Amino acid sequence: MGRVKDGEEYVELVLGLVERIPAGRVMTYGDVAEYLGAGGPRQVGRVMSLQGGGVPWWRVIRADGRMLPGHEARARAAYAREGTPLRGEDRVDLRRARWEGLLPGDER
Rank of each mutant, 00 (worst) to 15 (best):
G54Q: 07
L103Y: 12
V32A: 00
L102K: 11
R108C: 00
Y79D: 14
G65A: 05
G88S: 04
E72Q: 14
L94G: 02
W58H: 07
V11W: 13
G52V: 05
D90H: 14
G53T: 11
L17D: 08
V18T: 02
E12P: 01
G65F: 07
D93Y: 08
G30P: 00
I61T: 05
P41N: 11
P56A: 02
G24E: 09
A97S: 11
R91L: 06
T28D: 06
L86R: 07
P56N: 04
R42Y: 13
L68H: 14
L15Q: 02
G88R: 04
E12H: 09
G88V: 04
E9K: 08
W99T: 00
R62G: 08
G39N: 07
E12S: 08
A38M: 06
E34M: 12
R87S: 08
D31N: 03
P56V: 00
E72K: 14
E19Y: 12
L68V: 13
T84D: 11
D90N: 13
V32R: 03
V18R: 01
G101I: 06
T84L: 12
E107C: 03
G105Y: 10
G52S: 01
L17E: 10
W57Y: 13
V11K: 09
G37K: 00
P56M: 02
D93C: 04
E89V: 12
Y29T: 01
T28A: 04
E9W: 10
R108T: 03
G24Q: 08
G37I: 02
R76Q: 15
V11F: 11
L36F: 01
R87K: 11
G37W: 08
P41F: 11
G45L: 02
G40E: 12
R96Y: 02
A80R: 15
L13F: 05
V47T: 07
R59Q: 06
E34H: 11
D90W: 14
G101N: 05
G105N: 06
G7I: 10
D64H: 03
V11N: 06
L15Y: 02
Y29V: 05
A75Q: 15
R98V: 03
G2L: 02
G53K: 14
P56R: 05
A97G: 09
W99Y: 05
R59Y: 08
W58L: 04
E19K: 15
D93F: 06
E89G: 10
G40D: 12
Q51W: 15
R46N: 14
A78G: 00
V44I: 03
P41T: 09
G105P: 03
R98P: 03
Y79W: 15
Y35G: 00
D90R: 14
A23M: 10
